[in-house]
Design a protein around this nucleic acid. Sequence first.
DNA 1: CAACCCCTTTGATCTGTGTCAACGCCGTTT
DNA 2: AAACGGCGTTGACACAGATCAAAGGGGTTG
Lengths: 248, 248
Amino acid sequence: MPIHALKAACSQCNLQELCLPLGLTEGEIQRLETLASTRRKLKRGHHLYRTGAPFEAIYAIKTGFFKTDVLMEDGRDQVTGFQMAGEILGMDGISLEAHSCNAVALEDSEVCIIPFAQLEQLSSEIRTLQRHFHKVMSREIVRDHGVMMLLGTMRAEERLAAFLLNLSQRFTARGYSSAEFHLRMTREEIGSYLGLKLETVSRAFSHFQDSGLIGVQQKHIRILDSAGLKAVLSRTSPPVAAIPIAAA
Amino acid sequence: MPIHALKAACSQCNLQELCLPLGLTEGEIQRLETLASTRRKLKRGHHLYRTGAPFEAIYAIKTGFFKTDVLMEDGRDQVTGFQMAGEILGMDGISLEAHSCNAVALEDSEVCIIPFAQLEQLSSEIRTLQRHFHKVMSREIVRDHGVMMLLGTMRAEERLAAFLLNLSQRFTARGYSSAEFHLRMTREEIGSYLGLKLETVSRAFSHFQDSGLIGVQQKHIRILDSAGLKAVLSRTSPPVAAIPIAAA
DNA sequence: CAACCCCTTTGATCTGTGTCAACGCCGTTT
DNA sequence: AAACGGCGTTGACACAGATCAAAGGGGTTG
């Protein structure tokens, strides 16, 4: 595994405001840079870490796209999240000092390695950093609650709409188009994340396309009617299958 | 269960090893006691906090039983967890400095209030405490991943079996019987947590009873065959049959 | 450039769970 | 003690999504 000891150069990273707390002094940022000075590149398909691996560091995604998944003994698995540039990976490992999921690069990627012991040391000295780290962990908990609500209460098309809107919003926050993007994951991985089978995901895509909400071409997605997608989500009554306009 | 004293008296609390880090000196425990010296009693049905309330403290459950739930605009809601003595509530509020779920007492309960700003201060001074708090947050993340797996991949009876085994294990850790306990929540709340309707929960209970796995009488549960319950979980049923060694 | 493999789409059918409805139990109120 | 209301159980039926099956793209690899 290629590890580059280039300066991480947080101070020049364009993901700063996603990754770092606001309000750090220049000196504080430099201390953080020293801490996170090691990077690691991963080819598509390679693991950043695996379940059971000893926990030593958390990772800030510099470029690329990841998924995390958990595996049950009987072989069933579940994608627990998709992570993109500026997001933090690895916090699952803190509790047992070993990772409890797998993190896999879905495209060629690069991460900044943040040794955890040193991060704790530094965050006990820099109040802003400590608070920020706690917020990042808490945000993960809140996000998970959102996924639980999605899995527990939403129907297939609602789940997919929520998923697309979430991706769109996160791409937007990174300066990419909110209306057009490239999916890095397969239908099966989307399905695993959403608690659906790949065929169901595919059908929902097709149905959204037929309804004029999105354009789909393999992994290329164009959001044509984001208000319409939001409407799919806030639909109050469970039934309301197909509107009887086009019966025959 | 005689537990009183106006002082929180962590040093005399029988939940210590669930709630506090091992290896604190006596002096450190005393500083923590000072911090968590306020308690709050809640009657069954009352809220410890509500979605949107400003975040100021986290709470250690001293006695009682809680649920947390999140609400969507359209009225759908989802129970995100059940918490019992020794567990920590409120970490959802850190990220946005406001709570993102409701916490409700399911029986008369008492919590220790831990003002968050002071906890951060103290944890920056006591390394063991800092590490412990990070582990508690991380454990919550790992737990949530488990729930996601449950909601995403398990069938109704598997979910209920996992739920019962989890409760049993947590009661055991608190010195209660692992085989016999009282459910504090309704079938509907169980269903919400497990992503099922209350009728499905009820049917699964009945089926487990008919199979001799458990005894059910309203909210009173007796686990008769915990190995059988575990077997429900690891059933490899839908696909997968013994695959003969392939073409020779 | 061609062959292959993986991914995706679509159709037909099956099934687990939701939905609707009725009734019974239990604790509480008056 | 009787009446009430919330909670739990059970049955009949409906439907969303799973499963099984087959065929069509696209990109990678030799």
